[in-house]
Design a protein around this nucleic acid. Sequence first.
DNA 1: TCGAATCACTATACCGGTTAAGTGTCAATA
DNA 2: TATTGACACTTAACCGGTATAGTGATTCGA
Lengths: 344, 344
Amino acid sequence: MKRPTIADIARRAGVTKAAVSFALNGQPGVSAATRERILAIAEEIGFQPNSAARALSDGRAGAFGLIIDRPPNMLGIEPWFMQLVAGIQAELSGDHAALLFSTAEDQAAEIAMYRSWWAQRRVDGVFLVDLQINDQRVPVLEELRMPAVVIGTPLGAGSLTAVWQDDAAGIISAVEYLAGLGHRRIARVTGIPRFWHTKIRTDALAEAAQSAGIESISVEADYTRERGAEATRTLLRGPRRPTAIIYDNDLMAISGLISAQRMGVEVPAELSIVAWDDSPLCELVHPPLTALSRDIPAYGAHAARILARVASGEAVGHFQEDPPVLTLRGSTGSPPLVRRLSRA
Amino acid sequence: MKRPTIADIARRAGVTKAAVSFALNGQPGVSAATRERILAIAEEIGFQPNSAARALSDGRAGAFGLIIDRPPNMLGIEPWFMQLVAGIQAELSGDHAALLFSTAEDQAAEIAMYRSWWAQRRVDGVFLVDLQINDQRVPVLEELRMPAVVIGTPLGAGSLTAVWQDDAAGIISAVEYLAGLGHRRIARVTGIPRFWHTKIRTDALAEAAQSAGIESISVEADYTRERGAEATRTLLRGPRRPTAIIYDNDLMAISGLISAQRMGVEVPAELSIVAWDDSPLCELVHPPLTALSRDIPAYGAHAARILARVASGEAVGHFQEDPPVLTLRGSTGSPPLVRRLSRA
DNA sequence: TCGAATCACTATACCGGTTAAGTGTCAATA
DNA sequence: TATTGACACTTAACCGGTATAGTGATTCGA
């Protein structure tokens, strides 16, 4: 398979490379008839521009990057990532851009890879996920002048553009729903505390609970099954046992559900459970989990669109997604006291 | 940030671009002293070659591709993928090669993307996963002469090199273990039947059961929770109820476990469960699942190494991984009859 | 009817590497 | 002492695009 170049097209059309380039890129400088002839030939021989040549010539790589540095065995279980990539892809493929993807051991390795990609001109920009408080990646990308879009809160994004979803609104909707059911003591098992979205949810919970006049607590965990179960047991054994727990991911929610059930705590009769991020896992267990759902492919697609604009030098403001919505399933209900009252 | 080129190095070293290129690539043609001086300058200014220029010049993209076309919400839950990428990455980054990753709606879209990558010279080769019977991707890649490594069985890989793991051995070890516990009727809930590894496991189960003198059956499913639960219910309600079920992935195994428990079937007292592919999910449930574990990052790393060799024109034979090993947990035990006998 | 403007291209340089061919210097050999 | 050859470079072409500065022919206005 020899891959055709513009020189091949030029030869067949009886013009020079430049004329072909003009025709293919919609530039003036060729007559309508010639343009059409060139396009027909290009179509016929299945011409696609050599990405390296184009990149070298116009100084853009035609690719964007995404690096994840959560531990791989953790990450794999989080379905949001694949959906994010699917969304990004849908958008990029329209522009014939590619996505470079990598995992990294830690943030230092991630940063080293950004530097390398930048030095090699491999990418025109990157997506940043899991933004942390005092995130080291932000100043590095700013220093490199590397176009970047933060997938997450603008807080801490520095001069980088953020595409974000209002996590506080998610918490508020969950708290309002639970408070409406009669819950007066709501707990939450958090993700990794250094992530911005964890802090935002923690603050939002405290505030939402206060304004609803109910009690709340956030217990730190790290998205893993073990810590989720541990936090659940601590909460259920503690002196002020909550009647509802919100988990920062579905894995911990399931692990919490199972721990509760093994302790003889009935869900939802004695304990309501809400998971953050809906996935097939939520429907796996019994009762199925009420969850905060979001349209992650759309999120990815928006981020890709914004990054393309940022990379082309446009000054773009932050973009806010629709807030997550609560998908009601069997794991939530009225707390014990309300049940007793309503039975009477 | 202006990124340095070999011309910058050449200027500072007082030589030409060619000399710099020789020095950097370990080619003869420069004295040891000059070479050292050039390398020192390159190091000092943090030189990294422009990937597009190199790609254009030497005709290799310096990147490999991986496309997945399972539905994204399915895939996300399968941790193996992330681990595979982590393994691939570890190997590629040593060669300063990148990984292009994409998801596709279906196989036609996947094939279209290969053609596009090829025409644009985006990649030097691709990894093929989830090989199907009569897989359309194989002839296309052969036609394009695109270097490719099949991650999976050599069967159906055509002229492509395969890096594979003996799924039959996995089934055999599970059957031998279960038969040793006294099971006489083993079922399996399969993944998507058109995948080669599904067929291999099905055939291996039939054969292993026969040679152990026990009964076996494979029920078709598709890796989803729903079909896994459905298949489990069908098996448990059927006339010849199995005392052990092997599931082709952990999601179905969990869904099967939960279905069984809801039907009042005790695990492992009345039913043993084995999951294929160990992940945190297996330890999430109670009892935790016995599972076939494999070193997936190593798998990915091997595949990457082989693909790099294939892409450089070497004729490489298939590479076989260590077979999966059974990790014993609480979901397996002796079947009811043996229990009664041993109690007597 | 002549100069200027427009059109439709061509010629060519350039992006940043790699590499084949060429050149000047010096030591070893006949 | 002239010849050879190895060495240490330089020159220049090339990869496949894009973009800028020409160039010849036609059209237009005065």
